[in-house]
């Protein structure tokens, strides 16, 4: 079964955790990303909307999990990312890792969430209390690139 997935509904954390069970594992580390009400100094975030390029996203997510299993001495690892509209406080992403010992479990968990944030094609739109909205990492970037008349690619 796939170790990286997208979900359009609430995530069953008990079921997620159970998938990692292993008699040889003495440690389980997890990370939950939650929707917060502010970002980059801006208050009044009311809700978020996540959009994913799912066909490529699941491939890249699986590659990240495979890399973690390669780099760290862990038993198993899974990650689920929510898509669609999410309210403040909702779970946006979950990473879980089981391992014989805690050091590897913590390190792998950190590796997976960092890589997912940088590499998996997921976009986040913030909706603000003042009625505005914006795509995170795109709007500021767009303004800056326009000023600089930068090219669209490296």
């Amino acid at each position: 079964m796939s170790r990286f997935g997208f979900s359009r509904g609430p995530v069953d954390l008990a079921a997620c955790r159970a998938q990692l069970a292993d008699p040889a594992a003495g440690a389980y580390a997890s990370f939950e990303g939650w929707v917060r009400n502010h970002n980059e100094g801006r208050d009044g975030v009311l809700r978020l909307e996540y959009e994913g390029y799912e066909q490529l996203g699941v491939k890249e997510g699986e590659r990240i999990i495979a890399e973690a299993l390669d780099r760290f001495d862990i038993s198993s690892a899974h990650c689920i990312h929510r898509l669609g509209e999410l309210e403040i406080g909702a779970l946006a992403v979950w990473v879980g890792v089981s391992a014989a010992h805690r050091d590897a479990a913590f390190a792998a968990c950190r590796y997976i969430i960092d890589e997912v944030k940088h590499r998996v094609p997921i976009w986040k739109k913030e909706h603000y209390a003042d009625g505005n909205s914006g795509w995170v990492n795109c709007e500021a970037c767009a303004a800056h690139a326009t000023e600089a008349k930068g090219s669209h690619h490296a």
Binding site: G52, Y53, H81, V116, V120, W123, K124, W135
Partner: peptide, 24 residues
């Protein structure tokens, strides 16, 4: 699949331009 900007196009290809991502 991710590819370089110099990748040649072929008939029937499906292309996606990927803006800066923001998962998590």
């Amino acid at each position: 699949e991710f590819c370089d900007w110099s990748t040649p196009l072929r008939d029937g290809d499906s292309v996606v331009f990927i803006p800066p991502v923001a998962g998590g």
